[in-house]
Design a protein around this nucleic acid. Structure first.
Lengths: 209, 209
DNA sequence: ACTATTGCCTGACAATGTCAGGAACTACGA
DNA sequence: TCGTAGTTCCTGACATTGTCAGGCAATAGT
């Protein structure tokens, strides 16, 4: 099982099987909680024996690695700017709020994916260089609108903390609701008042208690 | 192994052994990552066979439960008001900032404990009624200073999200440093400006960019 | 057609959580 | 003090789990 082949047909077939295995792994993780599945269960779901999976992935952790890469690609797709994104100050600010809501939705719509991407749930799993590079790309794309506002360093740290906090609390404490989702706009405006006070007048409509 | 005995000496001995097992479990979890230890390893560390541990805990998850309870008792101890806490408005505000710093320190000083208390890392583990009650108590004690300021509902949600976010980002991204710890005071004042604007004049010394 | 590669299988092994039964020791009551 | 009950650990064992080795049937390449 070298994994290298010159045949397009076989290569395609192999890629398909790999994708099937990864998709089945997502299903099992979502059903059982992250990490709570056996290779035998996975094999059964795909229609082969567990041992056969080892001709596609060298270890269980390599399946997590493929999932990690998969999840970050999905994040890139979610956070990629869409074609209608304007460039003047007012649109930028609305873009930030929309970006926050998009990230929140991405994370809370799939808690297992969130765990794998942003927490350290699997003790022995660390991403490969390749998939870590994808994660870095996802990070850069996610923060690009903030950087375009001139935010950097500790300012970005504060924003990522607030965003991560809203998501984390939502997933931990109200997984089937939207309790912390209702706070996104307030949190966003609070952050922008703090970090970009000169730019926020048009967006802020009054937030006093 | 009924676990019920009339003998103080035996009862004490049993409690000591239980404590030893839990302490050894903390050590192993901290060394290997949460959940990444075997009962055999734990038995060896305590000086008995793995099977013998089952005369003290019915399952591995029951050990996690004891640890969960343990960790929340430590949180209660950390967040309990100290004797020098004043009651007027100015002291209250400084109390909030100190509370934030204390919570941050509690979490980041022991990431495995943080994971067990605040994340869902062990798929099949849910706290027992008894230890969940301790966790509720810890929550109430932690939030009491905020409630004394008149904060409630979604205001508390925003604060807990920011706090959780700072901790979570710190532990995930800078486990051996203090990158997000440096943002605590700014985050605190930002929150108080947002939520208690009438009360914060004496504390805020100017935070514009 | 023949050979090499691929894709799965069976068989097996060490590690893991946990159960059952029992021996040695300790505590309690007569 | 002695006998009995309870406690604390042990050995032995089992089902499950991650993963390796070897091999056969089907497919691909020449």
């Amino acid at each position: 099982m070298s994994g290298t082949t010159n045949s397009t047909r076989i290569s395609l077939r192999r890629q398909e099987t790999i994708s099937e295995i990864v998709a089945a792994a997502w299903d099992l993780n979502r059903a059982n909680g992250l990490g709570n599945f056996s290779m035998r269960e996975l094999g059964t779901k795909v229609g082969m024996r567990a041992q056969s999976i080892y001709s596609y992935f060298r270890s269980k952790n390599e399946i997590f690695d493929a999932m990690f890469c998969d999840g970050n690609l999905a994040l890139i797709e979610t956070m990629q700017p869409s074609s209608g994104d304007g460039s003047d100050s007012e649109d930028q600010l609305e873009l930030i709020a929309a970006m926050m809501r998009r990230f929140f939705q991405f994370c809370t719509s799939d808690p297992v994916r969130y765990q794998l991407l942003f927490q350290r749930t699997i003790p022995d799993f660390t991403p490969s260089e390749e998939s870590f590079a994808v994660a870095q790309q996802a990070y850069d794309i996610s923060l690009a609108p903030l950087r375009r506002l001139g935010l950097e360093g500790s300012e970005l740290d504060l924003i990522t903390a607030v965003m991560a906090g809203l998501v984390g609390q939502q997933i931990s404490n109200d997984p089937h609701g939207n309790r912390w989702g209702l706070l996104i706009d307030q949190a966003t405006s609070m952050l922008l008042k703090e970090l970009v006070p000169d730019h926020i007048a048009p967006l802020i409509k009054g937030n006093s208690k």
